[in-house]
Design a protein around this nucleic acid. Structure first.
Length: 174
DNA sequence: GGAGTGATGACA
DNA sequence: GTCATCACTCCA
């Protein structure tokens, strides 16, 4: 069983999707070559009230894609070196996205984008075969007990209320 | 523990 | 135009 996740899948509450993304497959296609890996770690950024989210300061040229429709990539540069890969969720007008932090074949969000040869040209593109970057359901079932929830990484600046929310989802290795 | 790195956003 | 900040990684 193999099914590409469509915008319908992503047009739902962010935290619910975050949990379901664990065990799905990230697929990158460049020409005839495919790079793929199972998603093992994600973080949710949900709504304009989330102080850790780029959307907390309102809409800007960079984050405008978060305010748009679901199932679209949000890619941006951080610390002058690393690109972050996010998938936009929730309905149009509600700013939310999920940061894909890790797959089985790469550790860390900056390493992930490098491994999958993701660049800024994919920003604002729809996650499907046409754009060359998408997410698939391959029928892998992950029990809820196998998913660990922790606070998000690197968001202390957002203050205790938001930095302590358990919006990071990680696949337990054993 | 600390440097590197450059786009972005806030402010003037 | 300036300036501080940052959803990270690497090396010590």
């Amino acid at each position: 069983m193999k099914k590409i996740l469509s915008s319908r899948f992503f047009n739902r509450p962010t935290l619910k999707i975050s949990q379901e993304l664990i065990g799905k497959f990230l697929v990158r296609k460049i020409g005839k070559k495919k790079i793929e890996g199972m998603i093992t770690e994600v973080e949710a950024y949900d709504g304009h009230r989330d102080r850790a989210s780029h959307a907390s300061r309102g809409e800007t040229p960079r984050n405008s894609v978060m305010f748009g429709g679901a199932g679209v990539w949000y890619i941006y540069l951080i610390y002058g070196n690393y690109l972050m890969l996010n998938i936009v969720t929730h309905r149009k007008g509600y700013p939310a996205a999920i940061l894909i932090r890790s797959t089985g074949v790469s550790k860390g969000p900056g390493r992930l984008t490098r491994h999958f040869k993701i660049d800024k040209s994919l920003n604002k593109k729809i996650a499907n075969e046409k754009s060359g970057l998408w997410i698939e359901d391959r029928g892998v079932k992950i029990a809820k007990s196998k998913i660990k929830r922790t606070p998000r990484i690197g968001v202390d600046y957002a203050g205790p209320i938001w930095s302590k929310k358990h919006w990071r989802f990680v696949l337990k290795t054993k």
